[in-house]
Every structure is written in C-alpha cells, then in structure tokens.
C-alpha cells in the first residue's frame, strides 16, 4: 500500500518534466496531444537565437564563478565551525544560514537598494555576488556534517612533523575534504544555474538563462521554452554526472595508490 503511494509520489514529480521533454521534440507548435511527429526544429531555432546563446554563456560564467567563490568562503566557514567555541560557533552558523530562511524577494530587494546606493551598476558581477550569497548557506549545510568528523589532531600531527600551516592544509586537510567540497561546489553550481527570484532584482543588461526563459514565458507559449528547459536540465545532469565520474575516478586512484604503497612497504 505504502509502496504504491511512493510510486504515485514519484510519478507526480516526474510527470510534468516528462511532458516538457516530450513536447520539446514535437514537430508542431501545439502543446497538446495527439503527438504529431518528432523534430529537432525548436533546438535549431534556439541555437539560431543570439539572445539564447549569450544567456546560456552568461549563466555558465555566473554559475562557475559563484560556485568557486562559494566553495572558498564555505570551506573556510566549515573549517572555522569546528575550531570555534560554542558561542561564536552558534553565531556563525546562524548568520551563515539566515539568508535562506528568508524568501528571495527580501534578499533581492535589499541588494537592489544596496547596489543603487553604492552606485554599482547591475551586471553579471552583481548577479555573481547575489548568487554567492544565495548558495553559501546551502554549501555550508551540505558540507558541515562531513567536516564535523574531521579530526583536527591530524593537522596537529602534520604541524608536529614540521609542516607549515599552509602545508598542513594542502597536504592533509584539503585531500581529506576534497570530495565533500566538490560535492558542495556542484550543488552551488546547479543552484546558481537555476536561480531566478533574486536574479530578477540584480540582473543588468546581460541576461542569464533563467531570465531569458522568464522573458519567453511572459510573452508567449512557445515550444522554444520546452527546448530551452530540456537543454538546461541536460546541462545540469551532465555537470552532476561529470562530478560523479571525477569523484569515482579519484576514489579509485587513491585506492590503487594505497595498495601500491602497501606492496612497496
């Protein structure tokens, strides 16, 4: 009984996305059944639209830079959390979580006022800053439970053996935490690539992909939106799969390295 319900739940989640994907390949502009044959014309139309191409490029740039910034700041926060005593730790985890407890509306509006008062023009830079703010809480939440298991004495041991602080970080801490950090970075990339609610407040003349899709959505109902959506989904999945492969490859390499050392020793 529960099992049937779970299948129903999955179907509810998947159905709309399957519909979108199906109609992206529809030969006619109608978004209803009966299905009148398969074609790639909407993808070709999209590719011919310079607005789409530049929006896609901008989104990749924004998501890449935002996820790198988020990973640097977020990793430092996670490493700080395990060092601090309870009171400052509570304060830090509160302030680094607070931005997602509020609807994007508040964040977007307050950033709009800030940038205007400071005389900063809205551009991809403001979008990147806003996305970093938006992704940081997710990154910290995703990473902190793993970092909590990290044994600080390992760093101490490295220092004891004569490593500088930076060496201890680069040779001990970073390799141990890297899979977790990469996971958080990919999450941030996906979140940034999809973000629209804060983006509408801080975007300048250069559009992002969701902003481009939103402008299409406001104008008409066209299968172009389906095609753009499908491309966005496929791209996100590719990034996720790439991350999975990198992690898998790294785990395998580490394993074989360890076995190799064992033979030598």
């Amino acid at each position: 009984m529960l099992r049937i319900y779970v299948w129903g739940y999955l179907a509810f989640l998947a159905f709309p996305i399957l519909i979108i994907t199906l109609f992206a390949f529809h030969a006619s502009p109608a978004l209803t059944f009966p299905f009148e044959g398969v074609s790639l014309r909407w993808f070709a139309d999209l590719w011919a639209d310079p607005n789409f191409v530049s929006a896609f490029k901008n989104s990749v740039i924004v998501a890449t830079v935002a996820s790198i910034l988020t990973s640097i700041l977020g990793t430092m926060v996670a490493l700080a959390l395990i060092r601090l005593s309870p009171k400052p730790r509570a304060a830090l985890s509160f302030i680094s979580f607070a931005p997602i407890a509020l609807p994007g509306l508040f964040i977007g509006a307050s950033l709009l006022v800030l940038f205007d008062r400071l005389g900063i023009y809205r551009s991809l830079v403001t979008v990147i800053l806003a996305h970093t703010l938006f992704c940081l809480p997710f990154f910290v939440e995703a990473v902190r439970s793993r970092v909590a298991y990290f044994d600080l004495d390992l760093e101490l041991a490295a220092r004891d053996l004569g490593a500088t602080r930076w060496q201890a970080f680069r040779l001990v801490t970073l390799p141990l935490l890297l899979p977790t950090i990469i996971g958080g970075a990919i999450l941030s990339f996906a979140l940034s690539f999809d973000e629209i609610i804060i983006t509408v407040f801080v975007v300048g003349e250069q559009s992002t992909l969701p902003f481009y899709i939103l402008s299409l959505l406001r104008r008409t109902v066209t299968p172009l939106i389906n095609a753009a959506s499908v491309l966005a989904i496929i791209f996100t999945l590719l990034v996720l799969m790439l991350a999975g492969t990198v992690l898998w490859w790294q785990a395998r390499r580490e394993k074989s390295a360890r076995i190799g050392e064992g033979v030598v020793g």
């Binding site: 999955l10 989640l13 998947a14 159905f15 709309p16 996305i17 519909i19 979108i20 109609f23 978004l31 209803t32 059944f33 996906a190 999809d194 629209i196 609610i197 969701p210 899709i213 939103l214 959505l217 109902v221 939106i225 389906n226 959506s229 966005a232 989904i233 996100t236 999945l237 996720l240």
Partner: peptide
C-alpha cells in the same frame, strides 16, 4: 530519484504546469 527532480529548474516546472493545466492544456 527525488533529488534528481530537484535539479530540474523552477521555471521549467511552472511552464510544465501551464502546459498541463492550461485552457488548451493536456
């Protein structure tokens, strides 16, 4: 599987439901 659906964009879902529920929808 559920997390996978999380990564399909917010706007895509809005458009999907418009396709499903619209007056000429599914």
């Amino acid at each position: 599987l559920v997390l996978l659906s999380w990564f399909s964009s917010y706007l895509v879902r809005i458009f999907a439901w418009r396709t499903i529920l619209g007056t000429q929808g599914i």
